[in-house]
């Protein structure tokens, strides 16, 4: 223990000698505030162009994208699940219950376990997962999860091979800095997802699906009225 304290002091002391200071001071805050930030903060695209870009980018990553109105969401979810050919799903506890109950469910025989403390083994058994999202970033086709109750624990969107993500148009921003502007507090947990898991480690050939979900499906809910009020 004593040795550990010594190492800490030794390192901080070396840094102090190297930089000439090591304690927080007013100059540090002023220097931070003066850092150059001449890059683009806000995109110039219209709301429609921004959504079109988001869809284009997601498709470049081989993600499936469908658009629907808020009223048609439950039916669209059912149609997506049916088209997946999978039956056993999991969903986080904060997913609205109306997403999960449509008459078609009973006919098709879907099973959906809500994650009220599922074990890893149970999640591993699921073929697919359905979640919400915190934000979509059009410039890079990125979906951001903050792992709230509607987005689920991290393991939930990791083990199942098929991820259906429901993203509202009002959640889509154009640039990465615009996403940071939407974070009123720095989040404790974030996963930025840009297309399905991939590798290019063998001869730079891009292979989809190594360990994370191999299939990413996105339902884009066109809640434009909400977006208009936001802008």
């Amino acid at each position: 223990m004593n040795e550990a304290v010594q190492s800490r002091e030794r390192i901080l002391n070396r840094i102090r000698i190297g930089t000439g200071s090591a304690t927080q001071d007013a100059a540090q805050a002023a220097a931070y505030a003066a850092l150059p930030r001449g890059y683009i903060r806000h995109g110039l695209r219209s709301a429609d162009e921004c959504l079109a870009l988001m869809i284009e980018r997601l498709r470049e990553y081989d993600a499936e994208v469908v658009e629907c109105t808020p009223e048609a969401l439950a039916d669209t979810i059912t149609a997506q699940l049916a088209a997946s050919g999978k039956h056993k799903f999991v969903a986080p506890p904060g997913v609205p219950s109306e997403w999960l109950v449509t008459p078609a469910w009973k006919i098709t025989g879907f099973e959906c376990d809500i994650d009220h403390g599922l074990t890893t083994a149970e999640i591993e058994q699921a073929e697919g997962v359905m979640t919400g999202a915190f934000c979509g970033i059009a410039d890079s086709g990125t979906i951001v999860l903050h792992h709230s109750a509607a987005e689920g624990r991290r393991v939930l969107t990791l083990l199942p091979d098929w991820h259906l993500c429901i993203l509202r148009a009002s959640q889509v921003v154009e640039t990465l800095p615009e996403y940071f502007d939407r974070c009123l507090q720095p989040p404790a947990l974030v996963t930025w997802i840009s297309g399905p898991s991939a590798t290019a480690d063998i001869e730079m050939t891009r292979i989809k699906g190594v360990h994370g979900p191999r299939f990413l499906h996105v339902i884009l809910v066109l809640d434009q009225s909400e977006r208009l009020t936001l802008n």
Binding site: S140, T191, I193, S194, S197, G212
Partner: peptide
């Protein structure tokens, strides 16, 4: 444009 996964935890 962005790598497939970036994770942040606290």
């Amino acid at each position: 444009r962005m790598n497939p996964y970036t994770s942040l935890w606290t």
